[in-house]
Nucleic acid binder design. Structure first.
Lengths: 210, 210
DNA sequence: CTAACGTTTGTCCAATCGGTCAAAAAATTG
DNA sequence: CAATTTTTTGACCGATTGGACAAACGTTAG
């Protein structure tokens, strides 16, 4: 018997919590936090509502756990942007990785987008703290590249925003992208087309002048 | 006395409907459709819930009216992208106009983003119809520019997506942008910085080769 | 077997939701 | 003024919501 905060978790608890989080990711990312019901998540997880509430006491706890997990993987690509290697190659790799995440983890992207859209009430402190610190750090790296003449001089902050925006667009606005491209061009090949275009845009757009 | 569909509207009806739509834009854009309540909108509009429901019978009617109005103004900049004038100047104007809309109408942008994020259940037919037709048309214009050597060859669809993504980012992800930029760089000047960066990125990125 | 513990569920509850309705209050019309 | 129509509101309703709870079920250890 544990106190109010169970530290040890049985095998079943760990497994069921994973099932719930997977179901919640699906539901939250398509309906938003307030638009999702515990019943929906419970049904998607294949269990009854009281049973779900046995593993997560409150709806917010599920969302919070999901968010914290997400942020680690979400910031990983930017963390990998390193000063070693050729600058333009580094930037291209970053763009490619972000686009792959939009392709492979669209639900995570939409969950994040939902949170930001609503004013980021639950992760504001992380944005101003961890994220800002990380961006500031990488901005210095990019500035170094620009001073060294390896990358065209431009605002590094807005460069990062542009990479975020263009890549996440393919996850967050997926329905619109597919609707506009139509059935022919809207297949899985759209990510390769996007990768080619974005590579061209950023490589040419950031090519240092002579 | 009117039938079930009142055609003529009194002065009060027109005014109150405007007040309600303004309030609903504020509420819907920050909480999403399901996350918003009629009470919230009524309070923001300064009237009681039954009174609001006297002007709009259902919550969905408000949202639908808001959406239809939005779409016209939202697509206007793309419609203006014309074959007359210098291609790169046309593209730069389009980017600037879209960025101005993100600055001046962020709530409209977020309302639209919310709808798309949730799978665009209410405007899917418009995406596949009106929007796709318009984009297809402008894609042809851009293709012409590319064939004429005025713009670097690139995928016109993804070029449009990139412009949408980078500009709307400053409305939809505003909290994140401001949090990352911090109090110093996050003031109103951020839109001018963004405009300069995006102009550089797209102009250099699309400069035709020799 | 029993006792103890972890798991699951049916039932219930208070709060909130979108929406109705009758009747009062304003405004308009004659 | 009175008659009529439009506008506003308090009270109310059924459905849904997040969550509580005790009882039942399952599993394991002695």
């Amino acid at each position: 018997m544990e106190g109010s905060t169970p530290r040890t978790r049985t095998r079943i608890q760990q497994e069921k919590r994973e099932v719930i989080l997977e179901a919640a990711l699906e539901v939250f990312s398509t309906n938003g936090f307030r638009g999702s019901t515990i019943d929906q998540i419970a049904e998607a997880a294949g269990m009854s509502k009281p049973n779900l509430l046995y593993y997560f006491r409150r709806k917010e706890d599920i969302h919070e756990t999901l968010m914290h997990r997400l942020l680690d993987t979400w910031l990983a690509p930017l963390k990998e942007l390193d000063d070693i290697g050729d600058p333009m190659t580094e930037l291209r790799s970053y763009i490619r990785r972000k686009l792959e995440m939009a392709r492979d983890f669209p639900r995570e992207s939409r969950l994040f987008a939902n949170e930001i859209l609503q004013g980021a009430p639950r992760i504001m402190s992380m944005l101003e703290g961890e994220l800002k610190t990380l961006v500031d750090e990488k901005v210095e790296v990019i500035k170094g590249w620009m001073r060294a003449g390896k990358v065209a001089k431009a605002d590094p902050w807005h460069l990062i925003f542009a990479i975020w925006a263009t890549t996440q667009h393919y996850a967050d606005f997926d329905v619109q992208v597919r609707a506009v491209l139509g059935p022919d061009r809207g297949g899985e090949g759209r990510f390769e087309d996007a990768a080619r275009f974005l590579e061209q845009l950023f490589v040419e757009g950031l090519r240092p002048k002579t």
